[in-house]
Nucleic acid binder design. Structure first.
Lengths: 136, 136
DNA sequence: GGAGGTACTTGCATTTTGCAAGCATCTCGC
DNA sequence: GCGAGATGCTTGCAAAATGCAAGTACCTCC
């Protein structure tokens, strides 16, 4: 369904994700919703990466169209809109954790000081070796 | 090290990945190397998504700079170059598997063999067991 | 030494992004 | 009930990235 609204380059699962998240900004919005407790347009604008207003509006619209994010009116203030992750959006959690683990392993400047992450990465190493040996 | 060659927007691990893979093409090259057995410039050009020659050359160069991909001369033909994943590139496997699992769950049109998902599920079970046994 | 394979590079039109400014709707205090 | 502020966008335009077609450089093989 998501694919019907745009050009589809192939039926590969990796490509499917790229057609939604293949840019520098979309995944940051998911991150802010999932890990940083941000919920409004104004809060997304304040993130370190300094997304511009037109790009933010466009990406929120696309995320809604893909049913990854949904928008509701704040109960206490009708001029305030609350963005939140749908179940489909929340299902991205394992992807986000693997990305975080990879960055923590390969980038010294990344801020992810977490002892559980080390154990997580070590277990992943075993899994990766097992699968790679089967692929070769 | 990878970050020194370009603008760095923040020290977030999600952003770190986006600075390399935040476009529509880079991850497809990793996919072709990891799952499709492609190894040469000409083979990457033949993929379903139809990457153009200048973009492919640019992305291969960046992937080399980030030490995710390395290039060697083919032993049998000195005009042929063989691209392959470095250990850092192979470490992306868990990310790729989670992306594939997410797409398989949320896109009916995605072509993902069940055998592939089964292998992933089995490996993930092993991983979870490994984590649980370390916790005890 | 010429044809064909392999890996790019270049030029240019089109598309996307980044930045600054402006606009629309709602809320709150008086 | 009205003006100031909060919130969430939209618009216009310059700059950068992308897509396409064509051309170049090096190697191999006959």
């Amino acid at each position: 369904m998501a694919r019907s609204s745009e050009v589809c380059r192939s039926n590969c699962p990796i490509n499917f994700v790229l057609e939604t998240f293949g840019d520098k900004w979309t995944l940051l919005i998911v991150r802010d919703l999932m890990f940083k407790g941000k919920r409004t347009y104004g809060e997304f604008l304040e993130s370190d990466e300094r997304i511009s207003t037109n790009i933010l509006a466009d990406r929120l619209k696309r995320l809604e169209e893909h049913e990854i994010v949904e928008k509701t009116v704040a109960p206490d203030n009708r001029s305030k809109l609350i963005y939140s992750l749908t179940p489909k959006g929340k299902d991205l959690l394992p992807v986000m954790l693997e990305i975080t683990a990879w960055s923590a392993k390969h980038d010294a400047t990344t801020n992810t000081p977490n002892s559980f992450l080390d154990m997580f990465a070590a277990a992943k190493d075993k899994m990766m070796s097992a699968i790679l040996s089967e692929l070769e």
